[in-house]
Design a binder for these strands. Structure first.
Lengths: 216, 216
DNA sequence: AAATAAAATTAGTCTTGACTAATTATATTT
DNA sequence: AAATATAATTAGTCAAGACTAATTTTATTT
């Protein structure tokens, strides 16, 4: 249906569309690690295929069709992540890259069968909601640990960064989806966070860290 | 590691190496549906990478390394076929094409984990032996139904052709791996075979049919 | 052995999707 | 508003891997 590159662009544009603000060629280039000139070429191609619309004022936007197809790629990615973790016993820092390849295999009923086999999971191992076959999905978590009030306690619902560097760090800190965290103190100097993990000893983490943990 | 094309060439050459006789560029071209000129290019490339050796007299041969890598692609293909059939509930005429895509995903321990998850199967759903991680595998079945003696009874062990046209025909005839077949009569005119399936009514099938069923 | 057919190879082209370098637009400072 | 910085775009190039058409090699007939 689509080439590997087209799918990767669609996915990148979809991901960027989750943040606020307009989507520029440069932003897409950074997100994919490509040259902006290459992005301009692909913008032309995807526009011709009616998957996106590009307006200098509004930036890049997915069309209905583009949105639909991008969501299905995300669906496949997240389903495979569940499979890799639950069935093949991978750790959550190893699954992203493999799912990145598996997501491009699109053979009719494959995603739906996999979905059924996995018991129709709502969330993937990083806490991201898994789109249903019709494109619907639960609202993604959006409140960061860094935005919590001092003294409050919350549950880790998802991680924003899925790099293995971050996930391995979390593993070392004994933090996973479901972990209880209390925000003990915010250091005003650099917005570092002093937290208590599952009621245990206090640990200090950076602001960047706090912004990559989504809680509820 | 290798490009998609390189892997497909390796696999095609491996498959051809199972038959007797030398492997010519034309044979590879036919097997892949490519132009012989393209094959010549790739032969050069794979030779430079020391995956094959090409000698006009001997034809194309896999080097040790090439053989090893080709077998691992076959391993992944056959493991995924088991997965698709047993876990996702596909029928055996649907799995080949999907496995053809999945086989190219090669992420370290993926095949081994899948192997374990599936319970270390010996044969894939078409009766082909699944190579182990070290490249070893059971000897493929090689006796065709067409080569049996009239009157003898055998068990379907594997199918040679994995096209959905053939497999759907088998489905209609109620023939699968394990089915008992008695060779009732060989029609001398065109080598058609009269067979009895699981002790039931007689059916007539072509010579080509009989050559694509492997028995034991 | 010569003629013909088939196979292999070379040369040149095309498409995809990346790149660099140069140029033009748009924002941001001063 | 002019100067400058940043972003977007164009033009041209490159590699992979396919193709066609033309040529050379090798096999097969007669």
């Amino acid at each position: 249906m689509y080439t590997l590159s087209e799918e990767n662009y669609l996915k990148a544009i979809y991901r960027l569309s989750q943040d606020e603000g307009k989507i520029t060629p440069t932003a897409i280039a950074e997100s994919l690690g490509n040259n902006p000139a290459s992005v301009v070429d692909m913008i032309r191609k995807l526009s011709e295929k009616q998957l996106i619309e590009y307006d200098k004022k509004k930036g890049v936007e997915l069309t209905q069709q583009g949105q639909k197809d991008a969501v299905l790629i995300v669906r496949r990615h997240r389903l495979w992540e569940v499979f890799l973790l639950e069935k093949l016993g991978y750790h959550w820092d190893e699954i992203h890259d493999i799912a990145e390849e598996l997501e491009h295999i699109n053979n009719d009923t494959l995603a739906d069968r996999l979905d059924k086999f996995l018991g129709f999971p709502e969330y993937d191992p990083h806490g991201d909601p898994i789109p249903k076959a019709n494109g619907k999905m639960a609202k993604p978590y959006s409140v960061t640990l860094a935005a919590m009030k001092t003294g409050s306690t919350c549950r880790v619902a998802a991680v924003r960064d899925t790099s293995s560097a971050f996930l391995q760090y979390l593993l070392k800190l004994n933090i996973g989806i479901g972990t209880q965290i209390q925000l003990v103190e915010k250091i005003t100097f650099d917005n570092s966070l002093v937290i208590s993990i599952n009621g245990k000893d206090h640990t200090t983490v950076s602001q960047k860290f706090g912004e990559n943990i989504l809680v509820e």
